[in-house]
Amino acid sequence: MITFDHVSKHYAGHDGPGAVHDLSLEIPSGEIVVFVGPSGCGKTTSLKMINRLIEPTSGTISIDGEDTRKRDPNELRRSIGYVIQAIGLFPHRTVAENVATVPHLDHWDKQRIDTRVNELLELIGLPPRDYAKRLPAELSGGERQRVGVARALAVDPNIMLMDEPFGAIDPIARERLQNELLRLQQVVRKTIVFVTHDIDEAVKLGDRVALLSAGAKVEQYAPPAELLARPATPAVTAFLGEARLVRRLALIHLRDVRLQPVNGSAPKTTVAIGGTLRDALDAVLRSPDGTVAVVDGDRVAGVVDGTVIRLASQ
């Protein structure tokens, strides 16, 4: 667990972008917590204070109850994975050498480093045989960022800090990387602090989302579904923008929805039970009579119509 306790960061002379005022927040272990907010709101500053790339002016950040200031900053950083938008791969080193950076700093033996590097490259879907010897310049943007993630995971840190890691990547590759991150998280179960200015990315990835406004003021800190259903402040509503309830439907799985029983013959239009309410809404709009059968393989689990969706979304 990472705890922000009345943390502030002031920059000399002005109170401009990046400042943080009295931030208190708890980040539970094993979850993805997303800091989202407009640029200059202090989300990146808050992230960088965790691994002490930026030192707070006042307040305390602790990891599992231990004040980070009590630890050597370099040793602290080696124990925390760190991924940034610009990636920052070392251009003069191969993919394998890049991934081996922190194990090398921690004086692992060669055998152990090689094994770990191969394991990680497999994990991120870049087969070592094809990729280990390549240079960063010989990779696509998406591949580079995956190497960046592998490098951050090298010594199996409990915590990963990700600062807009997919911000500079084209939309299709970005979506794939987001899905991979979620898949990876199923395997590795890290505490991930993720910074983005993209609310859709926040809602998609976060177990919890902290919506920040200027000075890293926490407008709302909640699971994405709750954020979309019940924006706490006008600032949250404004940042969520239009169609927040429709977007929220994508977060509700049909398995969790109370369906209507089948009455007579089941509707012709169907939706799979593995989908979300958003898929169901799409099917309802397609259906001639506004009703849709939810199917679980061959079995019809129930029926969805506009009323079911409206009730389930509240």
């Binding site: 760190y82 940034i84 920052g88 950076t101």
Partner: peptide, 26 residues
């Protein structure tokens, strides 16, 4: 590239390590 230095520091290289193994070679 400042991003390269930031990532070196962010991974826990000391100022000297970053200088010797990243900045000077580059």
């Amino acid at each position: 590239d400042p991003a390269v230095i930031e990532s070196a520091r962010g991974m826990g290289m000391t100022r000297l390590q970053a200088l010797l193994s990243v900045e000077i070679p580059l």
